[in-house]
Simulated assay, not measured.
Amino acid sequence: MSRHPVCRMGLAGFLTAELGEGAVREASSLDDLEMPAQFQLIIVDANSPSELAEVLSDPRLASVQRRILMAPERDFALARRAHAHGFSGLLPKTDDGPLMVAAIKLVLAGGEYFPCFEEIDASEGLHNAGPIDRLSKRQKEVLEEMRQGRTNKEIAKTLGISIATVKLHVQAVLSAAGARNRTEAVSRLAQDVSLGSEG
């Protein structure tokens, strides 16, 4: 849902290519969606603070199990706010198309996508956990592949996942480590965990 036709049509095009014809409906507002229809996921693009406040408090959205909020960029405060209102993800418009699609598929599968998830963890009182504890089993596998110097393409082939999904996991690893690049992340995290090849 977005009042910006280009944004709405672009994302709908990416998702239709991945999910098939008829799997995606686009609308400029909740009223256009004829709620309460049965939707697996609603992606909301609020264009102003007042519109965001309306969307977050709209009772019609509460009936939709999975919701993603689009944002101009990564925004810790907005991520916390969306999470507190039951959203499953924050989708920065600065992400590229394949990464957006992978994030949406992750949410459809029951996961969450907050690129700044360590801020969400801190707001839930999990900030005392070590960085490695914030990684899923799959993310630790990706970390081990990164430690061995493998590219995203090589990691995708080894683990049997898409390159876009690898990018999501690499992003989570960088975020957990507070690192600017892969080398820094590996150096900070690899020494804190017993990785598969070492144990």
Rank of each mutant, 00 (worst) to 15 (best):
L159K: 04
S136V: 04
V186L: 03
R80Y: 01
G10N: 12
L41T: 06
S28P: 11
F76R: 11
A122Y: 14
N128H: 14
A27F: 05
R66T: 11
V166A: 01
P98D: 01
G10Y: 05
G22M: 08
T151I: 01
E144C: 08
S187Q: 14
C7D: 12
A103C: 04
S88C: 03
A176H: 13
E73Y: 12
K105Q: 15
E26P: 02
N181P: 05
T94S: 09
A23W: 04
A179N: 11
A62S: 13
A122V: 13
L143R: 04
V44N: 06
V107H: 09
L159I: 03
A71Q: 02
R74E: 07
M70C: 08
E124W: 13
G13I: 09
I68T: 01
R66P: 06
T151D: 01
K157H: 06
A129W: 08
F76L: 07
Q38Y: 03
D45N: 15
A177Y: 13
K167L: 04
E198R: 12
A179V: 10
L106F: 09
D95F: 12
A84P: 00
E198T: 08
L19H: 12
P115M: 06
R3V: 08
M35W: 11
V24T: 04
I42Q: 07
F117W: 14
D121H: 15
E21A: 15
R67L: 09
R25A: 13
M35L: 15
L174N: 08
G160Y: 04
Q171Y: 06
H4F: 06
E119V: 09
R134Y: 15
A103K: 06
L61A: 12
D75L: 02
L52Q: 11
T16D: 08
